[in-house]
Design a protein around this nucleic acid. Sequence first.
DNA 1: CGACACCCGTGACAAATGTCACGAGAATTC
DNA 2: GAATTCTCGTGACATTTGTCACGGGTGTCG
Lengths: 206, 206
Amino acid sequence: MNDQTSKIRLLIADDEHLIRGALEALLGLEPDIEVVASADNGVTAAELAREVQPDICLLDLEMPQADGLDAAKAILEHGSPRIIIVTRHARPGVLRRALAEQVAGFVPKSTPAGELANVIRDVAAGKRYIDPEIAAAALTAERCPLTDRELDALRSSRSTKSVQEIAEQLFLSPGTVRNYLSSAMAKLGASSRHEAADQAWQQGWI
Amino acid sequence: MNDQTSKIRLLIADDEHLIRGALEALLGLEPDIEVVASADNGVTAAELAREVQPDICLLDLEMPQADGLDAAKAILEHGSPRIIIVTRHARPGVLRRALAEQVAGFVPKSTPAGELANVIRDVAAGKRYIDPEIAAAALTAERCPLTDRELDALRSSRSTKSVQEIAEQLFLSPGTVRNYLSSAMAKLGASSRHEAADQAWQQGWI
DNA sequence: CGACACCCGTGACAAATGTCACGAGAATTC
DNA sequence: GAATTCTCGTGACATTTGTCACGGGTGTCG
């Protein structure tokens, strides 16, 4: 791939131009890193990755079109760069899914800026890097106690408002939906379905 | 203050270390800009501003402790730097409040990175800069149709869940609160108070 | 087989929520 | 002064929501 003398070839994807540009500037200062591509959404990130074959892809998790995990999946189908996910809200369940996708690095945006270059070097050297805070949270967080249908109901209840509509979406009777939501709320200790749906989302279960 | 030869003295405040560091790197590359202070919340930003007396303060809107507007207010009590607000979600109402605080610049994080330095120079030269997209949105957006009490109720309903608790917070009867929420929902075309509160927040009314 | 967990549905009930009609007070206008 | 409009407030009402108890069906595991 890249020998001792050549630079680490980096792709950056973030939908906020200001931040992407700033990251380019920050990392461009490093003598052993070269930014070879940048994108503002997951789809073009995947396309660019196929073209330029970078060593490392630095992907923001929250992006329009396709998020960081979608992009990682697409990228790994046509190449084998190392992937680092950057995120604002680090949720345990998301970390699990990221690791399932063979992601090599996972850092929150609260990471000190100086650290990032080191993480990139470590990952380029074949190591993996997981933010210790998030790792701890993911390990202490118990497994999702909800059943599949309960998760379906919660998912629908985030976008839809009335039980009727949720029932129609899932092809169920309204009573059943309320039962699922009720039991989910009981398991999560929430007092409204919105609260329960929020919690489930925070954990990365939906 | 600063004559032709001296650099623009800049304070940066953003709670995400990664972004703050990246911005420092980006702007540090400019020959006529010098980052003299940086903070990760509004309170320390205000304290630092009093100490180092920067020419320009670049404040993120979303910060813990005190947000960008709070910080701007505090800063302007003990000095007269020019303030630039940076934000992820640019809401029309927030722009209005920012202008009321004598803020000199208002840019979203979707601004191209190269632009930012130019904005800083313009503002340092005494001009004002408002992102055209947000300005247009703020001008087309009609004035808030809600009464003061309706706004109070919506504000409370974002943090509190039951009508009872909202009523206690506002020293009102539960029935009155429900009326305010109901009329607010009618005015906004929402079908639940959460939806209405969300809309009002999106517009920057609360 | 029995025990168990999950899926789907029903009916009934209390509490919370949203809607409505109505009234008191203040300000404006004729 | 009377009519009008606006805001703020109260109480009654139907609907929605969340809870509970129950039953039938399916598949898995010991």
